[in-house]
C-alpha cells in the first residue's frame, strides 16, 4: 500500500500503462497513434498546469509555441541535418526566449493581459507559419523524420516509447517542483497575491518562471509531435488547441501532476469512443460541445477535476464502511 502511494512509482506505472500498446502484440497501429496524441498533449498540458493550475495564469498562445518548436525541429534535423538532441535544444530554446520576452511585457500587468498578449502573438506566429514557406512549407506543411538518438534511428514504436519516457520524467520533475519552495510560492501567489508579496515572493518573477516552464514544455510537445507524425502544417496550431490544453487541465485536475494526463486521455479518447457509436458519431461538433459542458461542470461542481473521482469514490465507500463498523460496535 505504501509503495503505491509513492508518487514516482505511480508515474512509472502511468508510463507502463502507456507503453502497453507497443508491448502487447497485435495492437493496431492506429491505437499507437491515438496514444501518441495523448502523450504529446499531456506533455504540453503538464506545462499549462504549472502556468494555470499552480500559478493561476491563462495563456491562449501555447499552441503556437508548440508549432514553432515543431517547425524548428523539422527544419533543423532535415534541412540543416543537425543531430536530434542539438536541434531539440534549439527548438525548445526558441519558445523559451519568446516566452520570456512576451512574459516580461505582459506579466507585469493585470492577469488577463497575458491571455490577450498570447492570443495576439499566437495569431502572428500562425501567420508566419503560413507565409514563410521556405521554412514551413506554407499551407502544405513541412515533413520530418523519425529521430536518430545515439546512432540509433527510432521506429514509430521507438519514437512513441521515447515520448512516454519523456512524459514520465517530466511528471517527476513537475512533482519535485510543485512540492518545493518554488511550487509553494506559485500556489501562494495564485491564492493570495497580498500574502505572497508580504512573505517575500517576487510575484513578477514567479509568474515569469511559470510562463517560461510552460513554454519549454509546449516546445517539447511540439518536437514530439513533429517527429512522431513526421509532418507539420499550420492548421494544427490554432487558438483552439491552446483552448483544448486549458480544458484538459481543468477537466483532468488543475494543480495536480496527473491531471494533465487524465485530461489528455479524456480529450483524445472521448471523440474516438464517440466515433465508434452509431448515430452520435455522425453529429459534427458534439465532442467539442461535450468537452465544453464537462469543463463547466468540473469548474462549478468539482473543481478538483476527474483525477479525484476514484479517490472520492474510495473515500465515500470507506466512510460508509467505517460508519457501518461503528454502528456494529
Amino acid at each position: 500500500m505504501r509503495l503505491i502511494r509513492n508518487k514516482y512509482l505511480q508515474y512509472l506505472l502511468v508510463g507502463v500503462a502507456f507503453l502497453l500498446p507497443v508491448l502487447l502484440r497485435g495492437v493496431p497501429t492506429a491505437t499507437v497513434t491515438l496514444a501518441a496524441s495523448m502523450v504529446y498533449t499531456a506533455i504540453a498540458g503538464l506545462g499549462i498546469n504549472v502556468l494555470l493550475g499552480y500559478s493561476g495564469q491563462i495563456s491562449l498562445g501555447h499552441a503556437a509555441f508548440m508549432g514553432l518548436s515543431a517547425y524548428l525541429s523539422a527544419y533543423l534535423t532535415k534541412q540543416l541535418e543537425l543531430p536530434f538532441i542539438l536541434s531539440v535544444l534549439i527548438a525548445v530554446a526558441a519558445p523559451l526566449l519568446i516566452g520570456l520576452i512576451l512574459g516580461a511585457i505582459a506579466v507585469r500587468l493585470e492577469g488577463f493581459y497575458l491571455a490577450i498578449a498570447t492570443l495576439g502573438f499566437g495569431e502572428i506566429l500562425r501567420q508566419l507559419f503560413i507565409e514563410m514557406d521556405w521554412f514551413t512549407g506554407g499551407f502544405s506543411g513541412a515533413s520530418a523524420t523519425y529521430p536518430t538518438i545515439f546512432g540509433q534511428t527510432l521506429t514509430k514504436n521507438g519514437m512513441y516509447t521515447f515520448m512516454v519516457c519523456l512524459l514520465v520524467v517530466l511528471m517527476m520533475l513537475v512533482h519535485n517542483l510543485v512540492h518545493s519552495s518554488t511550487g509553494r510560492a506559485m500556489i501562494a501567489m495564485k491564492s493570495s497575491r497580498s500574502a505572497a508579496m508580504a512573505m517575500g515572493v517576487n510575484v513578477f518573477q514567479y509568474k515569469l518562471i511559470s510562463f517560461a516552464i510552460s513554454s519549454v514544455f509546449a516546445g517539447l510537445a511540439g518536437v514530439c509531435y513533429v517527429h512522431f507524425f513526421r509532418h507539420v502544417d499550420p492548421t494544427v496550431w490554432t487558438a483552439g488547441l491552446s483552448l483544448n490544453l486549458i480544458a484538459l487541465v481543468v477537466i483532468g485536475g488543475a494543480a495536480t501532476v496527473g491531471g494533465a494526463v487524465v485530461g489528455a486521455v479524456v480529450m483524445h479518447g472521448l471523440p474516438e469512443l464517440m466515433k465508434e457509436m452509431p448515430i452520435i458519431g455522425e453529429i459534427p461538433g458534439l465532442p467539442l460541445l461535450i468537452v465544453g459542458i464537462l469543463m463547466i461542470i468540473i469548474l462549478i461542481f468539482y473543481p478538483r477535476g476527474l483525477i479525484f473521482v476514484p479517490r472520492g469514490i474510495i473515500d465515500s465507500i470507506k466512510k460508509r464502511f467505517g460508519n457501518a463498523k461503528k454502528g456494529e460496535v
Binding site: 520533475l173 519535485n176 517542483l177 518545493s180 519552495s181 518554488t182 511550487g183
Partner: peptide, 9 residues
Amino acid sequence: AGVLANMFA
C-alpha cells in the same frame, strides 16, 4: 534553491 535545483530535487 532555484527553479532547476528544486525541479531536480
